[in-house]
């Protein structure tokens, strides 16, 4: 075994250092704004990775992923709202701002919704699947628009961020950043493990040749539903983080263009690589930040740019990285 350090390892090490050093560096430069931006990037990196699990590995082009994000966010928002108002949800449940309760609940709710949607939609193929996931996300979107008690169209402000213990306060930008980073690394790492497990191999096999999977005896339906559920749950967690990051939840989070943007992040970074889509999220938000500083009409640049990326750089950023020999 060669002991030389691979370019990938160097890259990874530098990245880890940069991620850890970001808050103190930003503070010392007098630019705390960047800590918030970086947290937002990490949240979307997590969301993009969850989408990549089904899109990049399972070949399920979900055009409604933002709905799971939104549901996760609303769990935090609605429970926080009841906590602030001292009222009961459904007349029985008290509100809470405890992250120990709301974050897992966000995952549970989004996962359960994904499970139900998955049951119906993974039966369909290709374009039908794209459209049915879009339709379900629209249903969720309109559902929250009509929830006037929680602000309807205008959304809901978070009175305070989720609480964990007296030692860890998410109100502090740097703390929130590190918590988000921890979640992204743990869950993202977990997803990488999953894609290499037997379950992950089944997903890849379904994307490669679903008919063959059936004929070696694998009932693909249940694995697709399971993957959809898992991806929804992780997106729900990202949603809970996003609600905290923005101190705000609204139906706009679930707008179908948000789902489109999540797909863009995945493609931009390179499908089926998890780290690629995470980088794709960072690049997308950077692009948004840079372009919108330059002109308020930044989407007039983003649109054509997107077409060019799809046309020329289908492999995404990950495809441009130096490859490990074993990847072959």
């Amino acid at each position: 075994m060669a002991k030389s350090i691979s370019p990938r390892a160097v890259l990874g090490l530098l990245l880890a250092l940069a991620l850890l050093a970001l808050p103190p560096v930003a503070l010392s430069l007098g630019e705390p704004f960047y800590i918030g931006l970086a947290s937002r990037m990490l949240v979307f990196a997590l969301a993009a990775m969850s989408l990549d699990l089904i899109l990049g590995y399972g070949g399920l082009v979900c055009f409604g992923h933002a709905a799971f994000l939104g549901v996760g966010a609303y769990v935090v928002g609605i429970l926080g709202h009841h906590a602030a108002e001292q009222t009961l949800l459904f007349g029985i449940l008290p509100g809470t701002t405890s992250g120990w309760v709301t974050w897992p609940l966000a995952m549970l709710c989004a996962g359960f919704m994904a499970f139900l949607i998955g049951l119906v939609s993974v039966r369909t193929q290709g374009l039908y699947f794209i459209m049915i996931t879009l339709a379900f996300a629209q249903m969720a979107y309109f559902f929250f628009v009509t929830l006037k008690g929680y602000g309807g169209d205008d959304g809901l402000s978070l009175g305070q961020r989720s609480t964990f213990s007296d030692l860890v306060s998410l109100r502090d930008k740097s703390t929130f950043y590190y918590v988000t980073l921890t979640m992204a690394v743990l869950v993202g790492g977990g997803l990488i493990k999953v894609t290499r497990s037997r379950f992950g191999m089944v997903l890849r096999g379904i994307k490669e040749n679903e008919r063959r999977m059936l004929h070696i005896g694998i009932p693909t339906f249940r694995y697709k539903v399971a993957a959809f559920t898992l991806a929804g749950a992780v997106a729900g967690l990202a949603g809970a983080l996003l609600a905290n990051q923005a101190n705000f939840v609204s139906p706009a989070m679930m707008h179908w263009t948000r789902s489109g943007e999540l797909i863009v992040m995945v493609i931009l970074g390179g499908m089926g690589s998890l780290l690629g889509p995470a980088a794709g999220a960072v690049v997308f938000l950077t692009l948004e930040e840079v372009l919108s500083a330059y002109t308020e009409h930044w989407q007039i640049i983003l649109g054509p740019l997107l077409i060019l990326v799809v046309y020329f750089a289908r492999q995404g950023l990950y495809g441009m990285l130096p490859r490990r020999r074993a990847d072959r």
Binding site: R196, S197, M201, I216, G217
Partner: peptide, 18 residues
């Protein structure tokens, strides 16, 4: 992949299959 299909369900999320 085919061996795995015969080896019971594939709801095994952690250990690397490769």
């Amino acid at each position: 992949m085919a061996v795995q299909a015969r080896a019971g369900h594939s709801f095994r999320f952690w250990k690397a299959a490769g």
